[in-house]
């Protein structure tokens, strides 16, 4: 067999010889009896315990991965509830003391003529975290049962969640900057509320949850079906 790969790949990779005749069929490391280190990429025989190059634990599939994903997901969700109930910012001016929750603060911004900023805050603090909870849950469920969503799309979802999760921290940084900067003695002062701690914890735990997910499982659940579906 030629072993040529079509597509945008420069001459770096060649399909393995096992794929007799079918260029499109991929051989997984597990089928070959080897396992790749997820951290440094070194390949080892399946029975290897620890990667001798980088010290990472070698597992072909992380069986306990889903338990960790769900546990961290749940903690993240539990922190997200108080993050939305308690005030995020406490603004004290000459006339009054005002406490704003995340959503309340954004609504107020929109009313005061900064709808763009309100949208950024809502995106970073409400839409992205909620979408993240849904996507992680969906991915974790989808590797255990058949999913109508293709593996490419799910891989993309996973990458988006991993990439975008960090951006939820924007609101925490906004609170940090505001409450350090706006300390004008009697005139005005902004202080962080308890929601800030819960929100930061929620972001951290969902990031850990996404990291705990072993994306190789997405492709496993499919590989049996894929052969029959698109055998070219």
């Amino acid at each position: 067999m030629s072993g040529e790969i079509n597509g945008p790949v420069p001459v770096g990779l060649t399909g393995d010889a096992d794929a007799a005749g079918t260029d499109a069929r991929f051989v997984t490391a597990r089928e070959m009896g080897v396992a790749g280190c997820t951290r440094c990429g070194r390949v080892w025989p399946l029975e290897t315990d620890v990667c001798a190059r980088c010290g990472n634990t070698i597992v072909s599939r992380d069986r306990k991965s889903l338990q960790r994903v769900w546990a961290l997901w749940l903690v993240g969700l539990m922190c997200y509830v108080p993050a939305n109930i308690y005030p995020m910012l406490r603004t004290r001016t000459l006339a009054q003391v005002q406490e704003d929750t995340i959503v309340g603060g954004a609504v107020e911004l929109a009313q005061h003529g900064a709808p763009g900023i309100a949208i950024i805050i809502l995106l970073a603090s409400v839409v992205i975290p909620l979408a993240k909870f849904f996507v992680i849950a969906f991915l974790a469920v989808s590797v255990e049962r058949r999913s109508a969503v293709s593996y490419h799309q799910r891989q993309l979802l996973y990458e988006v969640v991993e990439y975008i999760g960090r951006w939820s921290m924007i609101d925490i940084f906004v609170v940090a900057i505001l409450s350090s900067l706006v300390q004008l003695n009697a005139l005005a002062a902004i202080n962080p509320g308890p929601a800030s701690l819960f929100f930061a914890l929620s972001v951290i735990f969902t990031m850990l949850s996404a990291q705990a997910f072993d994306s190789r499982m997405i492709w496993d659940a499919q590989s049996g079906r894929e052969e029959t579906e698109k055998d070219e």
Partner: peptide, 13 residues
């Protein structure tokens, strides 16, 4: 002589 994709486990030479 192998390289394995850490995301999807595909093996290549």
């Amino acid at each position: 002589d192998l390289i394995v994709c850490p995301k999807c486990d595909a093996a290549y030479s």
